[in-house]
Nucleic acid binder design. Structure first.
Lengths: 174, 174
DNA sequence: CATTTGTTTCATTTTTTATTGAAATATTAA
DNA sequence: TTAATATTTCAATAAAAAATGAAACAAATG
């Protein structure tokens, strides 16, 4: 593969089918790292990163070529990002292929993570604690006290965490 | 393996080398789910879950037997939890083996995650954005504006996120 | 409607992450 | 000491997660 780039070249000239520019690489790296934190595979970070770095809309085959990912990964990654609302399809007159751009509302990632991962887990956690508190009733009195203290502590903590989520969402949105 | 438990038995009788009680199972499940979210393997969740559910200190071989995990997983899991401060060694007069208890300061998990994962990533992200803003200088004026808007937006968002972390830590602690 | 082009699906493969358990090391007891 | 017990380490293995790419499907073109 050709990785050369004429010396004086300013970015944007070597794009399209060429290799990634330094700026693109930085952006991709950044989003790989962030999206991985909320459980997304590398390929999704790459896709969003490249779309974020690029002003003009990009078609799937360009993502495949420039990122060197498979069509499967590109298709699934785009689907996921579209479902999140993090990527939009752009209409380009006379273009056969679909073209994509990054939606810049970054809070979306945090929000989705909170709503779909964190909050449900806290809720299920709280249910569980209640169930545990019931189970505790059948314990010998000797153990009841210490155990129920722990459960109360755990419940308080889960409740507090859950209270916090809407704030965080709000704060990040504005 | 024996999984029976006489009908009238109240918990705590079948412990030690027996199977897990319903309460323990709930606690373990809960902590597997939570600790997995901050990137810890199942075995660590199991260990902390069992220690949390148990009032009395537990030795490593009991963890191994009751959770059916290997000595390696037990040793490494305990090491990690000790390093986090989430598990303490308890001195028991005349006991050969080390005994462990769960530290109940649950905010510790969130705090560690924030300080060791989230904050460093935001910092590195900010560095990167600055680097990108420099790279941008070499761009054709036509692309400069749109791109620099994005970077500014990204930078603001990272800064805002990073501001928030100390609050969250504070709030969860109290 | 046939053909070309673009996209999705999903069984297979690759990569990454976690677990195992035997051997090495450390610790306590006799 | 030495033997017995407890713990850690780490190469090998297993399990989980992600990526691949060929085949099925869909959409646009002429």
């Amino acid at each position: 593969m050709i990785t050369l780039q004429a010396k004086g070249d300013k970015p944007s000239s070597a794009e399209k089918l060429g290799d990634l520019t330094p700026l693109e690489i930085e952006a991709i790296d950044l989003f790989i790292s962030f999206l991985r934190m909320i459980g997304m595979p590398k390929s999704v970070g790459e896709i969003y990163g490249l779309l974020f770095a690029s002003t003009r809309p990009i078609a799937m085959d360009e993502l495949i070529n420039r990122l060197h990912i498979s069509s499967g990964a590109a298709s699934q990654g785009l689907k996921l990002l579209r479902e999140l609302g993090a990527v939009k399809t752009v209409y380009i007159p006379g273009a056969r292929k679909d073209h994509y751009t990054a939606d810049l509302e970054l809070s979306r990632f945090a929000t989705v993570f909170i709503k779909e991962e964190l909050h449900p887990r806290l809720s299920r956690g709280l249910e569980r604690v209640r169930r545990m508190e019931e189970l505790l009733a059948e314990f010998p009195a000797s153990e009841q006290k210490a155990a129920s203290e722990r459960l109360t502590k755990l419940r308080h903590w889960l409740e507090k965490g859950d209270t916090m989520l809407p704030w965080i969402i709000e704060f990040l949105k504005t």
